[in-house]
């Protein structure tokens, strides 16, 4: 049967010890420990709803065995920003109507953040299409998501420039 092991995990800057079975996915672990903002849509890497950042890089948590995370810091949508200190992407998604049912939203914002960090900080619409093609949205037709990413990225650049 499966072995269990206690792992030290860093979720949104909080370090915790979690007992994890060897075949457990990061999605299962995160939801089990209360990070239910990470959504389960398909468990096969087909939808992107479960995306989280590992050291700033977006992965599908449903395809990641928790045991392989190692020391990498896990960031969920809650770790990006809060109502009190919102991340510019969160503000843009809310204000521009990019979240409808909202179920894809955490993964969508996580994937956007990763794209802006690793691919381009100045995306055009095609860059966005490319960066978000692993995140299905069934409500918005993506149009307001394109708007929100363009707007959020701009706000991030301005914040960066102001520093």
């Amino acid at each position: 049967m499966t072995n269990r092991k206690t792992l030290k995990m860093t979720v949104n800057d909080t370090v915790r010890n979690v007992e994890v079975a060897t075949n457990e996915t990061l999605l299962e672990t995160l939801r089990r420990v209360g990070a239910v903002e990470v959504k389960c849509g398909c468990e096969k890497g087909d939808c992107g709803a479960c995306a989280v950042l590992l050291d700033g890089m977006a992965v599908d948590s449903c395809l990641t065995l928790t045991h392989t995370v190692g020391t990498r810091a896990i960031t969920t949508i809650k770790g990006l920003g809060t109502a009190e200190a919102p991340h510019p992407l969160q503000t843009a998604f809310a204000e521009l109507g990019a979240a409808q049912c909202g179920y894809c939203t955490p993964g969508m914002i996580i994937a956007t953040q990763s794209m802006l960090t690793h691919d381009t900080a100045t995306p055009d619409e095609n860059d966005i299409r490319h960066g978000l093609s692993g995140n299905l949205c069934r409500c918005t037709g993506y149009t307001k998501i394109y708007d929100a990413v363009l707007e959020g990225a701009k706000a991030m650049r301005e914040t960066e420039a102001a520093k």
Binding site: K78, P86, Q90, F93, G97, A99, G102
Partner: peptide, 13 residues
């Protein structure tokens, strides 16, 4: 901005 939007973008819903 919809009333349900903040909860959704902050992962609180």
């Amino acid at each position: 901005t919809r009333t349900d939007a903040p909860g959704k973008v902050f992962g609180k819903t």
